[in-house]
Each structure stands twice: as structure tokens, then as C-alpha cells.
């Protein structure tokens, strides 16, 4: 009865919201969006700081933003500050997980209920390499193709997760993750500060942006994405480690 009431209530709310949005004349119909009215129109044209004309893949050089992947250009350039915050969120989550699950004293692995056989172990080692490499690729080409620091970092983390799953005894050095996390995070802020010092503004792209579409293009973007990838990878690995180990409670 209570559930039915809640169901009717929430679905009713949903329907009301839909109707409200439909009645809203300013709210665009699905698919009927006029990007020209939005700030992202200039992000697409890479002409926030002055009209650049057409941006052509492989030809345009020294655009205000050199990334071919326009989402990346927003994530790590136009709205890089958000991304810094986002990294911080992940950072503090991993801190929190460590605080909550990291019991002082000897830590031991959570014993999994199955015994991985030899094939699994070898296979996962091999797979580990492949996933890791994919992750690195995704990170490095974040400004050109879909992907970037976040999925890449998560891939790195999943490759490490694979090692955890394949081996009961496996534990990485948490301390190492910590250092990596700290260094990557600090470097991100420092890159931002360099922007402030070398150019005028915090997080400003102070390197030449090169030709749109090249691997070595887009100025600091790839660097930042690598840092993000490392940071995300190490943070998520740290979280996984904490979930898979437990303190000597007894």
C-alpha cells in the first residue's frame, strides 16, 4: 500500500514534470535545439576569444584550442576548472574510503571464494597488459578521439582490478598510489598556476596549440589529460584496494 502510494506519487511527479517542460516555450523540444543560441556555439567554432573562421581538421593551426575532440576541448580547456574540481571530488572520495575502510593495523586481502587456476592467472596477466595499454592509448588520444583521462584512468584501474581478481595474494603498494595521486594532482594545480604565471590566467593554455588533429597538438591539454588519467587511475585503484582488503578486526 505504501509502495503503491509512493509509486503513484513519484510517477505523478514525473508526468507533471514532463508536462511542465512541454508547456515551457523556452525549453527546446527534443532534437530541436538551436545551438547558435547557446554558449557552446562558440566552443564548436573555437572562437571564444575572437572569430577564427572555419576550423579544419589537419589544417587549422594555433587555434585558441587545439583539440579535435570538442568535448575534450571543453572538459580540459574551456571548463578546465570544473575538471579540477571533479578530480578533487574523486580525490576526496578515495581519501574518505581510505579513512572509513582503512583500519589501523595489519591489513590483509579479502579472500575470494574461488581459487584462480593457472590459466586464469596467466591469461589475466596478459589481459592486464592489453587493458593497460588501451587505457594509455585512450588517455593520450583524448584530445583527438572519444575518451580521455577519465575512461583511460578507469581502464588502468580496471587492469589492476584484474590482477586483484586473478590472484588472492596480490596487493599493490598503496603508498605508491598515494604518491602518484598526490604528484599528479599537484601537477595539475601547478600547470594551472603556470598558466597564471606564464600567461595571464589560471589554467590558461600556455603552450602552442599546434595543428588540430595532430597527436602533439592542443598545448597543455594532453599533458593535463595524462595527469588526470594517472590521478584517476591511482585513485580508483586505491579505492579498489580498500574495498578488497580488510583490517584485522578480530
Amino acid at each position: 500500500m505504501k509502495k503503491l502510494f509512493a509509486f503513484v506519487l513519484t510517477i505523478g511527479l514525473g508526468v507533471l514534470m514532463i508536462f511542465s517542460l512541454r508547456a515551457n516555450t523556452l525549453f527546446p523540444e527534443f532534437g530541436d535545439v538551436s545551438i547558435a543560441d547557446r554558449i557552446s556555439a562558440l566552443f564548436l567554432d573555437k572562437s571564444v576569444n575572437g572569430d577564427n573562421g572555419d576550423v579544419v581538421f589537419g589544417q587549422t593551426t594555433d587555434a585558441e584550442d587545439g583539440a579535435a575532440n570538442l568535448v575534450t576541448s571543453i572538459v580540459v580547456d574551456y571548463r578546465s576548472f570544473d575538471t579540477l574540481g571533479e578530480v578533487t571530488v574523486l580525490f576526496i572520495s578515495s581519501l574518505g574510503v581510505a579513512l572509513l575502510l582503512g583500519v589501523a593495523g595489519k591489513q590483509k586481502r579479502l579472500a575470494l571464494n574461488f581459487k584462480p587456476n593457472f590459466m586464469l592467472r596467466v591469461g589475466s596477466r596478459a589481459l592486464f597488459g592489453i587493458i593497460l595499454m588501451t587505457g594509455v592509448y585512450v588517455i593520450l588520444h583524448g584530445h583527438l578521439t572519444p575518451g580521455g583521462g577519465f575512461p583511460g584512468g578507469a581502464m588502468i584501474a580496471s587492469s589492476i582490478l584484474l590482477l586483484y581478481l586473478a590472484d588472492d595474494e596480490f596487493r599493490t603498494k598503496v603508498k605508491g598510489f598515494k604518491v602518484l595521486e598526490s604528484v599528479a594532482g599537484s601537477l595539475y594545480v601547478i600547470v594551472g598556476l603556470l598558466g597564471l604565471v606564464l600567461a595571464t590566467y589560471f589554467l590558461q593554455n600556455f603552450l602552442p596549440t599546434g595543428t588540430v588533429g595532430d597527436l602533439f597538438s592542443a598545448g597543455v591539454l594532453p599533458i593535463v589529460y595524462v595527469l588526470i588519467g594517472l590521478k584517476v587511475g591511482s585513485e580508483i585503484s586505491g579505492i579498489i584496494d580498500h574495498f578488497l582488503t580488510e583490517g584485522d578486526l578480530a
Binding site: 575512461p151 578507469a154 580496471s158 574495498f243
Partner: peptide
């Protein structure tokens, strides 16, 4: 981009954490 991220993080990692 979002699809890739969601695939790796949303369905992969989050599920793993739940399971753990």
C-alpha cells in the same frame, strides 16, 4: 565520450565496487 566513460566507470567499476 560519455558512452565510453559510462561504460568503463558506470557499468564496470561501480558494479565491481558493489559486488566487493
Amino acid at each position: 565520450d560519455v558512452a565510453l566513460t559510462e561504460a568503463v566507470i558506470g557499468s564496470g567499476l561501480v558494479t565491481a565496487l558493489f559486488i566487493f
